[in-house]
Design a protein around this nucleic acid. Structure first.
Length: 253
DNA sequence: TAGGCCATCTGGTCCT
DNA sequence: AGGACCAGATGGCCTA
């Protein structure tokens, strides 16, 4: 009857979720108020004739069969939403946003906006990095010879991953300090996120073409950048990288 | 208490 | 026909 064996709702505060015998998820109160007896009848019927027998049109279905069908559809929809929430959690995990028991989870809309902005910021940073690398290597001959040696790299420069981290971090720091504000200044258009105030530092900036790199980047107080000191912030880690470093960053409300 | 966020149910639509 | 997807409705929980 119920194929929903997915995870429990991702909502951090879902105290009234219970798992029924069939693996379905119901709110306690909804479960109580939502025709418990009818569900039992549907389950009993499902047990009696699990195969369903000959197909009937919907108008031919009995009340119990309609109810059973309804429960089945509900279960599928529930599973679909749980899968969606799982994907959303996966997205949250790779976001440069503090995670932990003391930190409220990003809302869905905040997660999506943050993800978009983060991607835009990374793209912008990558472009800037390419320019800087091009400047470092200077003459076109050098670049051409290197490019020939590494056919996969773009003429703009070798992949960032091939460079030592430190210069990269320095470049990023200078980039970050000099301008951008992809991550800051939540515009009035930003979705209000009262439950995750820190997220606003990443929300609401305009497209990189228009708004990126125009205002100082307001890193959270957790991301202090000191000259010569290794920096744990997300921006200073080689990309792509594991997200564990991001996970360890904690920002309390 | 209002507002935000969420899970769930439900009916409709589209696709296979 | 069945399933996936979507959007609206509803009600619960939490916070300012």
């Amino acid at each position: 009857m119920d194929s929903d064996t997915g995870s429990i709702g991702s909502r951090s505060s879902s105290p009234d979720l219970v798992v029924d015998d069939a693996g379905g998820f119901f709110s306690n109160k909804m479960f109580q108020t939502y025709c418990k007896d009818r569900e039992a009848a549907a389950q009993a019927m499902a047990e009696r004739c699990p195969g369903g027998g000959k197909a009937k049109t919907r108008s031919e279905l009995s009340k119990d069969e309609v109810q059973e069908l309804r429960l089945k559809v509900n279960s599928r929809e529930r599973k679909r939403m749980h899968d969606l929430n799982q994907a959303m959690d996966g997205l949250r995990e790779v976001m440069p946003y503090a995670q932990g028991p003391s930190v409220r989870k990003l809302s869905k809309i905040s997660t999506l906006l943050l993800a978009r902005n983060y991607i835009l910021m990374l793209s912008s940073s990558l472009e800037e990095m390419k320019k800087l690398v091009g400047d470092v290597y200077g003459g076109s001959a050098g670049i051409q010879s290197r490019t020939a040696a590494h056919p996969a790299v773009t003429p703009a420069g070798p992949p960032a991953a091939h460079l030592p981290l430190h210069p990269l971090a320095q470049s990023l720091h200078s980039l970050v300090a000099s301008a951008p504000s992809a991550l800051s200044t939540a515009s009035t258009a930003a979705v209000p996120s009262p439950h995750s105030p820190s997220s606003t530092s990443f929300l609401g900036f305009h497209s990189p073409v228009q708004g990126l790199l125009k205002e100082p980047l307001h890193l959270t107080s957790s991301y202090r950048h000191f000259p010569g000191m290794p920096c744990p912030c997300a921006l200073c880690q080689p990309l792509p990288t594991t997200t564990s470093t991001l996970h360890n960053l904690s920002m309390t409300k």
